[in-house]
Simulated assay, not measured.
Amino acid sequence: MNILIIALQVLVVASSVIMGAFILLHKASGGGVSDMFGGGMTNSLNSTGVAEKNLTRFTIVTATLWAAAIMALAVLTRFTGL
């Protein structure tokens, strides 16, 4: 059981770092780091590039994984008595 808790803790830390990087890569109103990777290639002000859409998807998946790992850690900690 301790191995599972350690694995979940590592997953939480890793996903936190990855999620922070993904959030910093998002384009702000004036541009951002994602412009270097092709995120600034838009035709109009209302549309977003493919890179920005994919970055949003990756951020949502990482955030969901992060939340699930935290909830699993809470359940394991509650019922194992650690």
Rank of each mutant, 00 (worst) to 15 (best):
L4S: 14
L4C: 14
L4T: 12
L4G: 15
I5T: 05
L8T: 00
L8V: 02
Q9W: 10
Q9L: 14
L11N: 04
V13E: 11
A14F: 04
S15K: 00
S16I: 05
S16E: 04
V17S: 04
V17H: 08
V17P: 07
I18C: 07
I18W: 07
M19C: 08
M19Q: 11
M19N: 07
G20H: 03
G20R: 01
A21R: 14
A21W: 14
A21Y: 13
F22K: 13
F22T: 10
L24H: 15
L24D: 09
L25K: 08
H26L: 11
K27P: 03
K27H: 10
K27E: 08
A28G: 14
A28I: 15
S29T: 05
S29C: 10
G30F: 15
G31T: 06
G31C: 10
G32D: 01
G32H: 05
S34K: 10
D35L: 04
F37P: 02
F37M: 09
G38K: 02
G39D: 00
G39P: 01
G40C: 03
G40N: 06
M41H: 15
T42Y: 04
T42H: 05
T42M: 04
N43L: 11
N43P: 03
N43W: 08
N43V: 08
N43Y: 11
S44C: 09
S44L: 12
S44I: 10
S44W: 03
N46K: 11
S47I: 08
S47K: 04
T48N: 08
G49M: 07
G49W: 01
G49H: 02
A51L: 13
E52G: 01
K53V: 10
K53H: 09
N54L: 15
N54F: 13
L55W: 00
L55N: 03
T56W: 12
T56S: 15
T56I: 10
R57N: 13
T59I: 07
T59R: 02
T59A: 03
I60N: 10
V61A: 07
A63T: 02
T64D: 08
T64S: 11
T64N: 12
A69K: 12
M71N: 05
M71H: 12
L73T: 01
L73G: 02
L73Q: 01
L73N: 01
L73V: 04
A74V: 06
V75F: 06
L76T: 09
L76S: 06
T77I: 09
T77Q: 12
R78L: 11
R78H: 12
F79H: 13
T80N: 05
T80C: 06
G81W: 02
G81L: 00
L82H: 13
